[in-house]
Write a protein that binds this DNA or RNA. Sequence first.
DNA 1: TCGCTACGGTGAAAAGCGTTAACTGCTATG
DNA 2: CATAGCAGTTAACGCTTTTCACCGTAGCGA
Lengths: 237, 237
Amino acid sequence: MAETRRDRLRAATVEEIIRTARRLLVEQGQDAVTLRAIAREMGMTAPALYRYFDSHQELLTRLVGDLFNELTDVLGEALCTVSPDDLAGKFLVVAREFRRWALAHEREYALLFGNPVPGLDIDRDDFVAECGRRFGRVFMTLFLELWSKSPFPVRSDEEIDPSLRRQLARYRDAMSVSLPLGAILVFIQCWVRLQGSVSLEVLGHLGFALDDPAPLFELMLADLAPQLGLRYSPPER
Amino acid sequence: MAETRRDRLRAATVEEIIRTARRLLVEQGQDAVTLRAIAREMGMTAPALYRYFDSHQELLTRLVGDLFNELTDVLGEALCTVSPDDLAGKFLVVAREFRRWALAHEREYALLFGNPVPGLDIDRDDFVAECGRRFGRVFMTLFLELWSKSPFPVRSDEEIDPSLRRQLARYRDAMSVSLPLGAILVFIQCWVRLQGSVSLEVLGHLGFALDDPAPLFELMLADLAPQLGLRYSPPER
DNA sequence: TCGCTACGGTGAAAAGCGTTAACTGCTATG
DNA sequence: CATAGCAGTTAACGCTTTTCACCGTAGCGA
């Protein structure tokens, strides 16, 4: 009762708002993440949120960026659990942790890697774009380490389609990594298979045939590892 | 003017409504496919649409089913352009035509293969489920033909993880095809790579590295074909 | 201590959404 | 000819984002 003054004093924080938005996302789906619902959960009214965000879109954008950062951190921590010279272990743990996070956070994953949120041009927003790049660097850094510590055979530049070669060179320059174009190609191919299979599974597009795609995922890893000069080993337990 | 009576007589049709809905989807995105907008485009009011659909969801469901059918037909027609005994040609043309349709109909593709539309449980709706099965059968039929006319080496049942083996058997029975489990496995693996890479491209998740993933797609086909005992050949023109 | 500004909220309102209910013509049928 | 039913309407409810005017408090300078 006497707290009404203290309550008035206590201003909401951006973090609190994002946390509430995420809770709504997880519990009720993307459509439930409305300004009114967020405000209601926090005991305020919707227009108050405009003190913190210019629009609903911007709030969602911020949430996307935070999710990217969380996923990046999770993968980074998983990497730390592997002995530094166990290259195969690093590759496998990152791939498996990516899938694990995706399955444990389906709706967050769909927000990051599913249909592009209309009006949320990820590359047009500096914050989210940086979070995305940071996320991508986890994989690129790992890949760079794999290659530098134990190079594997890749296509020579001449063996790569000219159009593709140009694109790979541009990407390599943008990332400022010194890898042969053939290695960049392998990197992208691996990423497409990894994200492609996880997306299909999380978004429910494998249910037509499988309830548990885990063994299929492991088969893919077993197929990918040798291409990177790594030895596949099944997950523990 | 004198046409008001004729106009009153002319009832809307379900096909017309779906066509209008699709036009809005294509031109303005999924969020623009509202009952009010559809009705406005057709010169009526929103509640009138409830004579044809129980809800907005049901309208969208019907649209999804129709899109599945169109895609199925497109793939079927593409198959007809290939000489009956050109197995590799059939595989390549279906894969390429799938990607082509996806790129030419990004928003339709996103509706079919992107984030699951909330409340639109594809498997819970008989109509859409049947359209989906019909679509899947295009690939399964082709695959069955590939295998029966020129079997390629596959894993034996014993070489397949027991959990995966059970799932494959269940799927094989549901599809009523007589293929070894190893072949079913290859089928699913191919499908995951095909749909995975097309989804990533269409949903804009390859843009971080490539503007034109076409050569990457061709590389994937060149990798897939030998696994099916087929010889890859680059696309014409 | 007074006065002012800036902050963080409120309520009302506009415009648009899905959905329901009551109503209105018109057609076709018994 | 009456009537049932179809295909549309308007009105309304509650939801959405967003803008606007307003209000009380905190903290600061004079």
